[in-house]
Design a protein around this nucleic acid. Structure first.
Lengths: 136, 136
DNA sequence: GTACCTGTAACTATTATAGTTACATACAGG
DNA sequence: CCTGTATGTAACTATAATAGTTACAGGTAC
């Protein structure tokens, strides 16, 4: 199961997009997410490293580096989900067995295709879409 | 990340499909996967509960209940991955915040679509396809 | 200087996974 | 009917990831 860092990250960015005028301290955001401010700062750090947001040490507030309509959920996904593979494959199978020797290769393409199909849906959804859904 | 139970389950079923004549004891299968026989029996139990395979207590061997060309990877996925949701969403958000109150609903549809797109790829791949890939 | 905020290390509790040992139960062959 | 062998499962361990928390160093601004 994909962890909640992703949904929290979308929450953070959507919150900033929906309330651009507010002062977005980690504590204020944590109040909406209902968690500890450090959890917010940790995820914000990942978003910052991916270039999606900017922050200044000591200064309250997070700013988006792009318009909400230009930020896809896939970018957020890749910013906070550090595994590049969605499926894990058991390794160290028996090399003397034809199935054990080739199973990883046989599954790799399909698993990659499945992951790409999932990612395509996230690529087609922007933060602006999410904010609009929030208002209904 | 989706755990290795899925790839091991595909390994098990592919092994039986590729070597229908062999006596598939959990120990023999464990030799190909390179793990403990109990791990195999645990996963086989899930496959059995899903109706994909049959076993008899005390008798070595697993038999497929359907032809390899009629078993999709999606069926195996659902047999061994017990979470029905691929994405987890943080709950207990702040109900007094419009974003906190509605974020789950706003994300649910997109997450469901993304999961379905992934599952569609698995639905289109059968065990027979995997066995054929193994032989190359 | 003071107040406040970010960034981060370090620790805890909880949970899931994978592997392992042990054993009850069930079948098959002689 | 008895023995050997296999399955099914409980119980335990080690390991790793997640989420939450405390503490604090360092930066900014008034």
């Amino acid at each position: 199961m994909i962890n909640t860092r992703f949904s929290v990250a979308v929450h953070i960015i959507s919150l900033i997009a929906a309330y651009p005028a507010e002062q977005h301290s980690s504590e204020w955001i944590a109040g909406s997410v209902n968690t500890n401010p450090v959890v917010i700062r940790r995820i914000t750090g990942l978003l910052k490293r991916a270039g999606l947001v900017s922050t200044t040490p000591g200064v309250a507030g997070i700013t988006l580096n792009k318009c909400p309509s230009e930020i896809s959920l896939l970018e957020i996904y890749h910013a906070v989900i550090l595994d590049d593979a969605l499926f894990s494959v058991h390794e160290e199978t028996n090399p003397n067995c034809p199935v054990g020797r080739n199973i990883q290769g046989a599954l790799n393409d399909t698993f990659k295709d499945a992951q790409l199909a999932m990612e395509q849906v996230l690529a087609n959804k922007t933060v602006a879409d999410v904010v609009q859904d929030l208002k209904q």
